[in-house]
Design a binder for these strands. Structure first.
Ligand SMILES: [Zn+2]
Ligand SMILES: [Zn+2]
Ligand SMILES: [Zn+2]
Ligand SMILES: [Zn+2]
Lengths: 160, 160
DNA sequence: CCAAGATTGTTATAATATAACTCTTGTTAG
DNA sequence: CTAACAAGAGTTATATTATAACAATCTTGG
């Protein structure tokens, strides 16, 4: 029972849906979903977990798609800039976006045990930090909101 | 005019006050503020900016307090665990806590231009992410909330 | 075809972080 | 007092994450 994003779901549909949306957006926005970029997005989508750049590179290299770090980093940069993936700062890792298409400020629930990640939304500019920013005259461009802890599956039979 | 935490203030008092509180807390909690740890805290307090571990190590080494990475990392680990400093995930850097003594979930406003950082508070478990976490059965242990953008000083005469 | 720009290949290196072992020092049980 | 222990600091080596720089190739419009 692979809990994914902490909930069971039709993951096959989830993946193909996301790939279709990504392709549509590339076609619409004149972005190029090249083989390496496509494969990296597939790898990220395959698991609702954060993967490091070198995890990705390992897969790519096993599949003959590239052996050097810049290959992975460039693909990840593209996906992040295009909004198809997010960088998880607290893990120095990357994860596929689960709200493809929507313009959103992502927030993550990160399991410290199994590294599974659920993506939620935030409206930070509306909360207390937004107030503080406005009061200070600080202009927010990007937000990082990451909660770390234990996912439901890892709370029982723990691994503290 | 060194805007500090985005506001001018009596920084000399700010630093000595923080050092006094840290010493008091160490005495009360049986923590040892050794020379290296004390000096690293002073270095972090001196600027309301995030400093990398190797920035710190540079100062330490210039002062004969240690030349190898573990010296800096151990001191920083101590300060973070003791609550005297925070790690800024988005910068892989460290900053002195400006709410010493209070048990708090820090949130940061980070200028991408001058790396100055203002510390605010968050109550993430009460907001939308907290709701999502409860709904998913996710147990939050630690939160990372970092807003990146431009501080007041860097908005004029910019450096986009 | 050709030029311009985007993408990829490749080498090398930078920046961040930790493992593991030693040595010193200070505390304390006996 | 002194052996035993624990915490801290010194040191070496290495792991992990990330980027600079330049050459080669592909893509697309003219
Ligand atoms: Zn899925
Ligand atoms: Zn888990
Ligand atoms: Zn100050
Ligand atoms: Zn600034």
């Amino acid at each position: 029972m692979p809990t994914i994003g902490f909930e069971t779901h039709d993951h096959h549909a989830c993946v193909s849906d996301a790939m279709a949306k990504a392709e549509a957006r590339c076609a619409a926005s004149d972005l190029r979903l090249t083989p390496v970029r496509r494969r990296v997005l597939e790898l990220l989508l395959a698991e609702h977990r954060a993967l490091g750049a070198y995890d990705i590179l390992g897969h790519l290299s096993a599949e003959g798609l590239g052996t050097q770090p810049p290959v992975a980093y460039r693909a990840l940069d593209f996906l992040v800039k295009a909004g198809f993936a997010h960088r998880v700062e607290a893990l120095n890792a990357y994860i596929a976006c689960t709200h493809l298409g929507a313009d959103h400020a992502p927030a993550f629930l990160i399991c410290r045990n199994c590294r599974s990640v659920a993506e939620s939304n935030t409206a930070l500019t509306q909360g207390r930090l937004g107030d503080a920013a406005r009061a200070a005259g600080f202009q927010i461009e990007h937000t990082v909101v990451e909660a770390q802890g234990l996912c439901p599956a890892c709370q029982t039979g723990d691994a503290a």
